[in-house]
Simulated scan of single mutants.
Amino acid sequence: MPASNKNRAPDPGFGLYFHWPFCRKKCPYCDFNSHVREAVNQKRWTAALLAELDWFATRVSPKKLTSIFFGGGTPSLMEPETVSALIDGARRHFIFADDIEITLEANPTSVEAASFAAYRQAGVMRLSLGVQSMRDDALKFLGREHSVSEALNAIELARAHFSNISFDLIYALPGQTPKGWRADLEQALSLAGNHLSLYQLTIEPNTGFAGAVRRGEFQIPPEEKAETLFEITQSVCAEAGWPAYEISNHARPGFECRHNLTYWRYGEYLGIGPGAHGRVIEAGVRTAYQQKKRPERWLAAVETAGQGAETVIPLPSPEERAEEMLLMGLRLEEGVWYENFDAAIGMPMAHFLRRDRLDQLVEAGLMIEDDHRIRATKKGRLVLNSLLPEILV
Rank of each mutant, 00 (worst) to 15 (best):
F96M: 07
S76K: 05
N107R: 04
T58M: 04
F70Y: 06
A122I: 00
V111K: 10
K6Y: 13
I68N: 03
A3D: 12
E105Q: 03
V60C: 05
W20N: 02
P10G: 04
S61M: 10
S110V: 09
P62W: 01
A113R: 06
A3W: 13
A48G: 07
I102M: 07
K64F: 06
N5I: 07
K43A: 15
R24C: 02
H93E: 03
A57D: 04
Y119M: 03
P80V: 09
F70D: 06
A51S: 12
K43I: 15
L16I: 01
A122R: 03
L50R: 11
A97Q: 12
C30E: 12
I68K: 04
A39K: 14
R120Y: 11
M1N: 12
F22A: 12
N33Q: 08
F18E: 02
P62C: 02
E101P: 00
E52A: 06
E79F: 12
F14E: 06
A114L: 10
E79K: 15
S76G: 01
E52Y: 10
N107E: 10
L16Y: 02
F22E: 07
P108M: 11
N5K: 13
P28D: 08
G73A: 06
R91I: 08
S76W: 01
C23H: 08
C23D: 01
H35E: 13
T74V: 11
M78N: 02
S110D: 12
F56L: 14
L53A: 13
T109N: 01
H19W: 13
D99A: 12
P108N: 02
W20H: 07
L86Q: 00
D54K: 07
D11T: 09
T82S: 12
G71V: 09
I102W: 01
C23R: 05
S67G: 05
K26C: 08
S61D: 13
F96S: 01
V60D: 02
D31S: 10
T82R: 09
K26V: 14
A118Y: 11
R59S: 01
S67N: 02
S110Y: 09
K25P: 05
K25M: 03
D98E: 15
M78W: 03
P21W: 07
P108F: 05
A47C: 10
